[in-house]
Amino acid sequence: MNSFIAFIMGPMVWISAIIFLGGLLFKFIGIIQSVRSKEPYVFSYLTVKHSLRSIGAWLIPFFPKSTRLSPVYYGISYVFHIFLFVIPLFLASHIVLFNEAFQISWPALNDGVADWLSLAVIAALVFFAIRRQMVPEVKYLTSGSDYLLIFLVALPFITGYLAYHQWFAYRWMVVAHVLSGELMLIMIPFSRFSHMLTAPLTRAYMGSEFGNVRHARDW
């Protein structure tokens, strides 16, 4: 058992990190190359200024009109996305492991705070799932894969939360936590989670079309 744990907390972390980052990089290069060969016009319209203008506008909470029309969903989603990155990156237990492997450390979240934030993320995901049932236009678009994605993100948070509290089956909970976290990382380049990479790209293009050609705002 210990050697299995050593594997999933050692080499497997490397493997998933490489698949995650390498996959995104590979995907990015693929997109750029295919734009070059099939749709070079994209570069004719893309401008740094208008791309950043649009991305920036959409990063300011409740600035785009669309976000004000669905404030609850948007607000929750905004917070969810921030915590999604903040919690794993600033969790004391993660930093300790990182420190022991690479002798690099940075300030950590207070454990109690991180605990509540994780609960908030889980609550947000539950909200997403319920919203998919309740809001007719969202329900119409929803298919099994959408729940699967929600579940995939929820799993590391749920198991992490339970493991931290050591309520039951601690060892298994940590194993499940580590594996589901790695699974999520691995899935990012190969699922719609890759919107992490494509969101800035599609936004940049639309922002450039609007700013550069249409002389209009796109938020």
């Binding site: 669309s66 969202v138 298919s143 719609r192 790209l201 599609t202």
Partner: peptide
Amino acid sequence: AYVETCMRCGL
């Protein structure tokens, strides 16, 4: 990218 990116969020 459009097909792969749409999160079916309904906004």
